[in-house]
Design a protein around this nucleic acid. Structure first.
Lengths: 246, 246
DNA sequence: CCGTTGATCTCGTAG
DNA sequence: CTACGAGGTCAACGG
């Protein structure tokens, strides 16, 4: 809600006629408001996949950035949605209030058809602040760069995001014996996928250096699963237990 | 909204005093309603990570299954949230309306503190239907099982979800020459991670059969990236272009 | 409960 | 735009 200067505002229609609901929604879209609709609707999606949801009571949210969310009373995730960047349209059709959300590349369409509307609301306000999160992989990286001995005595970081033919490695450096070290960081307990990822980087770097000198691969995470541990051993990779924050 | 029998219902308070808002929310929680609050709030989260969001105008949704969502007017994803299964509490404290959501394992806390409330709503209804989606990896699997020649002439599927020390492979079978084949399915264009995944399965199966006979690995997806293609070649893995739906 | 993987993943960032 | 990997990923399914 970077809109900003005007005071926050909320409008509400209770049990509006469909045509009144349509007008309120169309007006809200024009004003760049956030809009919610609660009522009985069916939902059709077609795009990267397709889905149909028969009639039921649900909560719809339209955001001014073009996002759409359809929520039931269960689950953290919306049952249907559309990402930001979509174009909204609203119309009355065959005794229903139809909200259409379109985008291209990929071509995707979401149709929400309300046969009954219990509430339409619009919201406008300002939200000047940014979310700051602590405990990310980035924090784990900083921790190691500030105190490389946390990884092992004698470790020297040389680069972050060093590029290899397989992608960028989190930390690249040398151990006390001068051997190249690839470090892969994970903020939480890891499974086999993280081991495969580290292995790709080690392989690629060995090939890149077309050296006979082998490259060490170290996975840094709070812990590993059994399978991941066995994979590490099988591929001669190492593990250091470390959390993103002290 | 499996609640069901009673007619759908929506209640609204506009610009309520904080204490009235608190009462409406507490009542909604008791009734198992879906609740929304719009107003100026700050948000603190602590659990798997931690975060703080300074005061701004946002939309909060409390679901009867214990989920919480805090939305700004931008983005598909909530800026803060709590998964289903949390316990909600609401109180007035130091001139603010505080909504607290707690869970254990992992210990996580979300605190939303409203200094101004523009609207409180509660919603109840019924949603008897299930979402059905077409175009998933499951559809791709069915397509191949019904017509194995789509993979290649002479392919015989023997099992799905066949277990290996590295995990379960999507389709396991034999080619016309009787060689073991591991098939990994992806519903959309794939990158290096999918190739690594397939490679893990092939490695594990070769070891599992402790056979000298090599195992073929086939990646099935609409398309691959350049890097993934090179990885496939390097590891002697194959690719078949196929979409989840005809 | 943990482990593993899919997802209309979303999101950011780099090229 | 595509590609690649992180994410408080979530959600489903299995052991």
């Amino acid at each position: 809600m970077t809109s900003g200067i005007r005071p926050p505002q909320a409008t509400t229609l209770e049990r509006p006629a469909l045509e009144d609901a349509r007008e309120a929604i169309a007006d809200g879209i024009n004003r760049g408001a956030m809009i919610t609709v609660f009522g009985r609707c069916s939902v059709d999606y077609d795009g990267r996949a397709s889905s149909r949801l028969e009639a039921g009571d649900r909560h719809l949210m339209l955001k001014p950035d073009g996002a759409v969310l359809v929520h039931t009373d269960e689950g953290q995730q919306p049952v249907n949605w559309q990402p930001p960047g979509c174009d909204h349209a609203v119309r009355c059709e065959d005794g229903a209030l139809v909200i259409e959300s379109l985008r291209s590349s990929p071509d995707e369409q979401l149709l929400v058809s309300f046969e009954e509307v219990l509430q339409v609301s619009t919201f406008a306000g300002s939200d000047p602040t940014e979310l700051s999160v602590v405990g990310t992989e980035e924090d784990l990286r900083r921790r190691i760069l500030e105190e490389p001995t946390l990884l092992e005595a004698g470790f020297t970081p040389l680069a972050t995001e060093r590029d290899t033919p397989a992608g960028a490695v989190d930390i690249y450096g040398e151990d006390s014996a001068g051997r190249s070290v690839v470090v892969e960081l994970k903020r939480r307990r890891v499974g086999p996928d993280a081991v495969s990822q580290l292995r790709r980087y080690v392989d690629a770097l060995e090939r890149d250096l077309h050296a006979d000198a082998s490259v060490r691969g170290i996975l840094v995470a709070p812990s590993v699963t059994d399978r991941a541990d066995r994979l590490l051993a099988r591929h001669g990779l190492e593990f250091v237990a470390l959390e993103p924050t002290a």
